[in-house]
Write a protein that binds this DNA or RNA. Structure first.
Length: 152
DNA sequence: GCCAACGTTGGC
DNA sequence: GCCAACGTTGGC
């Protein structure tokens, strides 16, 4: 099993939205690195931190599970979508998405709190200039954050 | 609102 | 294939 971190702006889609929907298609990713992670490395059953970005309190806010491996992202074919891609015909899709399922909400673990952990000093989401919306998390990092979540 | 960092685009 | 210009991300 692999571990991941998914960033989302809560004004666009929050952990509460996922709690309501239970399952959602993680469409709209238009970055090749993030796409490759979804398409090539994610498996059903993988777990992910749901991270809120560009908001009042950026940080980890919940846990989700990959419940369907990658398949072509419908929004790339939809002329009316902001994610439409004229260079991606149906017979040669460029963008993929997985489905994620709600596991639970957590207290918000802020970036400052994450940065204070020595065990997380190499965590990709904390690296300077990181803009990738999907990043891998190591088992050790996952365990460290889970431990943090048990505290208040 | 600022600005550093990064990905993409396009001229050459 | 290089690289400057540009647009976007996202923390602060």
């Amino acid at each position: 099993m692999n571990y991941w971190l998914f960033k989302s702006e809560p004004s666009a889609y929050s952990v509460d939205d996922l709690a309501r929907d239970r399952v959602t298609a993680w469409t709209g990713v238009r970055n090749y690195q993030a796409r490759n992670l979804m398409r090539d490395a994610m498996r059903a059953g993988d777990r992910a931190f749901f991270h809120h970005s560009s908001c009042e309190e950026p940080g980890i806010a919940g846990i989700a599970e990959i419940c369907r491996p990658a398949y072509p992202d419908e929004t790339q074919f939809d002329r009316k979508s902001r994610y439409y891609d004229a260079g991606a015909p149906r017979d040669n899709p460029r963008w993929f998405n997985v489905d994620v399922k709600f596991v639970r909400k957590t207290r918000v673990v802020t970036l400052a709190e994450l940065r204070a952990q020595k065990a997380l000093k190499n965590m990709q989401v904390l690296k300077r200039g990181n803009r990738l919306s999907i990043t891998p998390v190591t088992p050790a990092e996952w365990a460290c954050v889970e431990h943090l979540l048990e505290k208040t």
